[in-house]
Amino acid sequence: MRRFGLFILAAAAALGQQRNFVSCPIVRDTKTVPCFLAEYEGETYYLGIQQDITADFHPPQLKHEVLVEGRVKPGPRVCGGIPLQPVSISVLKEVNLACNTLLPPEPGIEAPPAPRGPGPSSRRPEGGPQAGSAPRQPLTGRQEFTVLYAFNDDYLEYAANQVVTEAAAYAKRIGASNVKVSGYRATSLLSNGDRLVEKAGLAEKRAQNIATVLRGLGVSRLVVESKSDAEPGDGQTDPSRRRVTIVVTP
């Protein structure tokens, strides 16, 4: 009973650090790359900086509201905002002209170090595995690959594109007997208690798109399925349920 009570307390504390909300993004210019921020209940949150297409963080867009699902990271403010990390960013599709705030650089507000500045890249292409990095073990046996999506989106962004390519390469290498593609749509529980549900039909569309790409990459023996009902939201792990799974069986 005591253990259960501690669990409830821990869960409440975790939820207390979670910020899930929809608002207009704010762009803060700096001496280097711009920071992307968003306001919720009178507080400013730092989401991330401008990076490259290959980065994990893809910034929001002016002219669109953004669904922010993130956890407060203890520590100092970044770029004038409370940092959220990890954070999931979903650009909502409909145009909202009210989302148009671009703030000028301000003394004392600096962006964190950026792997790439606003000019051309200075990084030279890597010549091979990084020194000291352990060689990756080749995959074997049954493998599950997960493609994640932004809310209400079926766009296969760069990282997802890599996952599908890897899954296809693996399936072809082992001559998979079965490749099961399963599409899902999900619910996002917001901090104010509202629930945002992804549109009907999206799970099937995601699954069919992935299947089309896999076929184009030379994968056969595909089984495609989708779950029409939206996955429930818990306010903490919702972005991980906007997905397609690819299960490759030898």
Binding site: H58, L62, G119, P120
Partner: peptide, 28 residues
């Protein structure tokens, strides 16, 4: 190559994960 400016509201540049606006150059 180097003159930075705000690339804004350009479909298939700002809309593919680079953010809107994007502070970059012609060479991007």
């Amino acid at each position: 190559m180097f003159r930075q400016f705000w690339l804004r509201d350009a479909t298939h540049i700002n809309s593919i994960g680079l953010g809107n606006p994007l502070k970059r150059t012609c060479a991007t």
